[in-house]
């Protein structure tokens, strides 16, 4: 566990403490992590011991019952340990065997997904086409700027010999166009391209998951 995770967990589970007490706990542990060195965060957390024990002890010291049900914590931590110790190699299959309920809910999810496809398919198509339109627009605008820039430069160079002032101005405008592309358009283009790719990726991985689950069931 890293320092940030440790501190967040403490503040999350110790919210019942008086403000001053909570501040004292958090600053104490934060200081310990920092003094032990940023590079040893995992090791420091390990040395500090089980965080749930620490939390419970602090609550008890402050006359607050640890959330009413201490057994719950013990049980859940035991279960987690068992899971990580023994079930890890064949995690998924055993999960399906041991918890028919979660298998049912997965099947139900697929069923819902299939039944509601008249709703989400159009939405999906709209999202994809919007993303595509956005991409095309940005590309088109950038392209237009590039064409304008290049042609201005070409025209500028030509008129430079016949009418130097106009030629220089046109040349300058051309460079401004290219500069705008370089400074503004290309980052925007990159950002749009990336986000479109991310959206499409997440949609496809979502579909992929559903198909995979169907196979597993």
């Amino acid at each position: 566990m890293k320092r940030i995770e440790f501190i967040t967990e403490l503040s999350r589970k110790l919210y019942k403490l008086p403000k001053e007490e909570l501040e004292s706990v958090l600053s104490y542990y934060d200081e310990i992590f920092l003094d032990a060195g940023i590079e040893n965060e995992e090791e420091t957390a390990e040395k500090l011991g089980n965080i749930d024990d620490i939390i419970r002890q602090i609550l008890v010291e402050n006359n607050i019952e640890p959330d009413g049900k201490p057994e719950y914590y013990v049980d859940s931590s035991k279960q987690n340990q068992q899971k990580s110790n023994t079930y890890q190699p064949k995690n998924e299959s055993s999960d399906f065997n041991n918890k028919p309920k979660s298998g049912m809910s997965a099947a139900a999810k697929i069923l819902i997904a299939v039944l509601t496809f008249p709703i989400w398919l159009p939405v999906l198509i709209v999202i994809v086409s919007l993303a595509f339109a956005l991409l095309v627009t940005v590309i088109a605008v950038a392209f237009a700027f590039a064409v304008a820039g290049v042609s201005c430069i070409v025209v500028g160079i030509i008129t430079l010999f016949t009418a130097p002032p106009i030629g220089l101005t046109t040349l300058g405008i051309g460079f401004v166009f290219l500069g705008i592309i370089g400074l503004i358009a290309s980052p925007i283009l990159k950002a749009v391209f990336n986000s479109v790719r991310n959206v499409l990726n997440s949609i496809f991985s979502f579909l992929h998951n559903i198909i995979d689950r169907r196979r597993a069931v």
Partner: peptide, 27 residues
């Protein structure tokens, strides 16, 4: 001195962690 240093010093004699010492310091 400060928390980390106190623990380091006491660790020369007994195996304690910072989380053991927090309630002690607070008390």
């Amino acid at each position: 001195t400060y928390g980390y240093e106190i623990t380091q010093n006491i660790r020369r004699a007994v195996d304690v962690s910072e989380s053991t010492l927090y309630p002690v310091l607070r008390r």
